[in-house]
């Protein structure tokens, strides 16, 4: 595989092969952690790491795995990596791990992981598989961060926990502004994601469905 096709492997997940907005993978765990940017960011990193390394491991093992237990072996590799990530989060960023709670465990069933293992890692060498994992994790992460940015900005008036909307604007301080409570609730994550897809597909017309 030459460098050109490697570049392609890297860039596809950001546009025409985005795991969330095009391939419809990994939405499950994505939306629940997007109320604030910090957990979304940690989730994005965790998924990227797990995707990249599970891709590499499965790619190394790809010629040795018996076909009948293929899925179980894949799940085992993913689950092991996720447990490691979970233990590390609990030990070093305790506050964030509390916020993510069960959603770290749900990385295991994140369809991106299984999807990439089946579609890419089983048929490719470790290095491209690694690139593919990183790129898909990041493609997923970007969507997560965009959604989280809007929800945190309009829902809490902050970005990464730092107050952006001036305190004096708020009604409680005699101003005119109120945080939008609705945007924090689960349904708005879906609607924001719908809007992102709308914009994405208006720009990239090839992706439009009939």
């Amino acid at each position: 595989m030459n460098s050109n096709s490697r570049l392609k492997v890297f860039t596809t997940p950001f546009n025409s092969g985005n795991p969330v907005t095009v391939l419809v993978l990994g939405i499950c765990s994505a939306l629940a952690v997007t109320v604030k940017l910090q957990p979304a960011f940690v989730m994005a990193i965790s998924v990227t790491v797990v995707t990249a390394f599970s891709n590499v491991i499965i790619s190394f093992l790809r010629n040795t795995i018996p076909n009948s237990i293929r899925i179980i072996v894949q799940l085992l590799v993913i689950a092991t990596l996720v447990i490691l990530v979970n233990e590390i989060l609990k030990a070093y960023v305790y506050d964030v791990s509390k916020q993510l709670s069960v959603y770290v465990g749900l990385i295991i069933t994140n369809c991106i992981l299984m999807g990439r293992l089946e579609a890419f890692a089983l048929g490719n060498k470790p290095i491209p598989a690694f690139i593919d994992g990183i790129a898909n994790g990041m493609g997923y992460g970007i969507i997560l961060i965009i959604v989280a940015f809007f929800r945190e900005l309009f829902g809490s008036g902050t970005v990464f926990g730092i107050q952006v909307i001036p305190e004096s604007w708020y009604v409680t301080q005699g101003g005119f502004y109120l945080n939008n409570g609705l945007i924090i609730l689960p349904p708005m994550a879906l609607i924001i994601l719908g809007c992102i897809i709308w914009i994405h597909r208006s720009i990239n017309k090839d992706l439009q469905e009939k």
Binding site: I65, P66, N67, S68, I69, I72, V73
Partner: peptide, 19 residues
């Protein structure tokens, strides 16, 4: 034979032990 049953059993045992 990667798909043989003896191989499969040994393979899964090794993986589980490593994990």
């Amino acid at each position: 034979n990667v798909n043989g049953s003896a191989y499969t059993v040994i393979y899964s045992v090794i993986i589980v032990v490593i994990v």
